[in-house]
């Protein structure tokens, strides 16, 4: 596993998200109200909306374009909608955040 540092947890607002740019596209890194951190592709399974710009509630985000609700844990659309985005492993080490880039590389391959 190749963990790459992306910054500190304080960089992300609670119930918010930031983007990480990678050659394979953007990753959205979320921080929930209780400081859990998740990373998923920043690309809604519906029509590619930027999930990082959505409203974060519980462990889910609502896409800003057409309101699909995506689980941050599984990447799957919740409710009646069907679809999923790739989830990326995250590790919180004290204040520091790391993501596992292989997950991305394997996608590019």
């Amino acid at each position: 596993m190749n963990w790459i540092a992306i910054g500190a947890i304080a960089d992300i607002p609670r119930r918010g998200a930031r983007c990480v740019e990678t050659p394979q596209g953007k990753i959205a890194v979320f921080r929930t109200a209780d400081d859990q951190v998740f990373a998923i592709e920043d690309h809604c399974p519906h029509k590619g909306g930027p999930l990082s710009q959505g409203i974060v509630h519980g462990v889910a985000v609502t896409c800003p374009l057409h309101n699909w609700v995506i689980s941050l844990e599984t990447g799957k659309a919740l409710g009646a909608d069907e679809g999923a985005v790739r989830t990326i492993p995250v590790r919180v080490d004290g204040e520091r955040l790391f993501i596992a880039l292989e997950a991305l590389a394997s996608k590019a391959a």
Partner: peptide
């Protein structure tokens, strides 16, 4: 500020 900038750019060298 955080709204308008990516948090990080990673992986470009490898790619």
């Amino acid at each position: 500020k955080h709204e308008f900038r990516p948090m990080a750019s990673v992986g470009f060298a490898e790619a």
